[in-house]
Design a protein around this nucleic acid. Structure first.
Lengths: 339, 339
DNA sequence: GTGAAAGCGCTAACAC
DNA sequence: GTGTTAGCGCTTTCAC
């Protein structure tokens, strides 16, 4: 083992005190009017011996670790991995490191790992919560460490969040379908304890109401964000005597399930049934057919979250409102015009 | 701020020494024959006041942080995010945390962040290196902290790795094409400083040679793993007077680029040109047409990497060979039989 | 059975 | 211009 070089060993070798060494290595030479000779010798020694500071010791001393806990419900979901990418980028640019946890859509793991993040003295937490319960997040605010939710959030909590304009996303997607003559539009949704799901649904309902078309509750189905959920409920929808002419899928994963079910039933999109998917992914333009989607801006979401956290770390009293990021309808060829 | 509870405050409140408190909280009560009374009072106090240990202090004291640095060239690439998911899962199950860095396919950032990981005293590093240079990784082995490469690796280094059977992947994909009558098979590759790229290419070439067909070097193109690369070189390939009848794309991203170019040229797969993509993704079965792929097992890769790291942490002398994980050809409808 | 104290690597307050 | 020292929260050795 290359014997480790610490302030102490440097000081000993150079016959200086650790204080002096610390000062020059932290760029405080000027401030303390340390002699050029000392500065030079320390600098050279450090370079030659490849000194680099022990951040754990620094962290203990400063009660500040320059790390941010990032809690994601499913990092394999391309929406979240893209968001994580932007968050890591913004954080590392500010010299923060990311402690990543994949909660596996499991509140118990999330709870336990929030505890772990806290034990590790992260300076802040950015979380896309699994949903359902969030007492473990409320605790964080008591400890006064900054926290912000991304994508998913809780309405009845004072924790700020950045998320897409889910309501509007639901609204414009549904409206687009209606404008193309659709009257029987199915909503394939995720778990309704999740706020964005509620919002997207509200948007859907508003569009239906505005158009004055019959709001058939049996067309609103689905219980979670996965592929199987999309598959299973699409199968059921297609069984209906009075089958919907369009499906609005609330996530890219649900969308994949819809595609599979439609295919298995020997139907084609958009001739037999139209489809819009919430969340745009690189591959959707190559799907058969290219799918019309509601595109979220994960870059802005990620950057805003980091910006808030950074400001909040610097200034405890810093506050902002939660932020709603605009979405966009990307028209492709999965919606047909009827009648 | 809920005033923080440390060993010291507990000891003070309970009129015990920090040593004793530490011992009972670490389950060493039996070992040190600490009285039931003391144990109970400490335990209760800890529970009531929600004590939880400061891992930074523990880490400093123990020179062990129970954290693993995970270096990924592009976390938004679904192959890597899936692998990261499995790594995080295995690590957290063993009470390790993940320090995530997205190198953005940038060696400079990688270099700098490896340094950072080391400063943060990670117990080990799992890395899918960007490629090109790797001196910064060699340094790690000197410091004697365990490291393993996943997916990408360097042949001329003693650092172990887990990766797919890239050679065989290239071989069986190409062979499959040949068996379907293809003679002019283009290879759309990534950066050739990356070993898996070389291996896949070797596999491709072996299949061509075995079949005794003309090895046309002009059919081997491409310089990196992105979508644009796939797009650009496919355009060129399709311009050729003697155009290939099949393309073998070396990554899911390149594959997307191929799809786009083929479409823009008004051609269809597999009628006009066949396609095989290296790396299977959930969406490929819904592409137009469903794409035949070479499927890698990112779960096994991730688990093996963590297992190695854990063993190595426990036992400095633990050694294994690098591991090659089998791949599988998943036949769908993007390959037509000719002649 | 329990306490006292050293020390992990670092910074900063205080000294001269 | 530089040294000394306390202390961040913890574990562990040495006492008794």
């Amino acid at each position: 083992m290359a014997k480790k070089v610490t302030l102490k060993t440097i000081a000993a070798d150079l016959k200086l005190s650790v204080g002096t060494v610390s000062r020059v290595l932290n760029g405080k030479a000027k401030e303390f009017r340390i002699s050029d000779k000392t500065v030079k010798s320390v600098m050279n020694y450090a370079k030659d011996n490849n000194y680099s500071p022990n951040m754990v010791a620094k962290g203990l001393r400063a009660s500040r670790t320059f790390s941010i806990g990032l809690m994601i419900p499913d990092i394999a979901n391309p929406f979240f991995s893209m968001m994580a990418k932007h968050i890591e980028k913004a954080a590392s640019a500010a010299n923060y490191s990311i402690l990543l946890v994949d909660a596996e859509e499991n509140v118990e793991k999330e709870k336990q790992q929030v505890r772990n993040m806290l034990n590790r003295q992260v300076d802040a937490i950015i979380a896309a919560p699994v949903g359902i319960s969030f007492d473990h997040f409320k605790e964080i605010t008591k400890i006064k460490i900054p926290i912000i939710f991304v994508d998913r959030y809780f309405n009845n909590s004072s924790i700020p969040y950045v998320t897409s304009d889910n309501f509007n996303g639901g609204y414009i997607a549904t409206k687009h379908l209606i404008e193309n003559g659709h009257q029987r539009i199915a909503l394939l949704k995720g778990d309704e304890t999740i706020e964005p799901v509620k919002e997207r649904r509200r948007g859907y309902q508003k569009a239906i109401e505005e158009a004055g078309i019959f709001a058939d509750e049996s067309l609103i189905v689905g219980v979670e964000f996965g592929v199987e959920n999309g598959f299973k409920y699409t199968k059921e929808l297609l069984q209906l005597k009075n089958r919907p002419t369009a499906i609005f899928a609330m996530s890219n994963l649900i969308g994949l399930g819809v595609l599979q079910a439609v295919k298995e039933e020997g139907l084609t999109i958009p001739n037999d049934i139209s489809l819009i998917i919430f969340d745009d992914q690189p591959y959707v333009s190559y799907l058969n057919p290219p799918i019309t989607t509601v595109k979220q801006n994960s870059e802005i979401i990620g950057e805003y979250a980091v910006e808030y956290i950074l400001n909040r770390i610097e200034d405890e009293s810093y506050e902002t409102d939660s932020k709603i990021i605009p979405i966009k309808l990307i028209e492709r060829n999965s919606v047909c015009t009827i009648r």
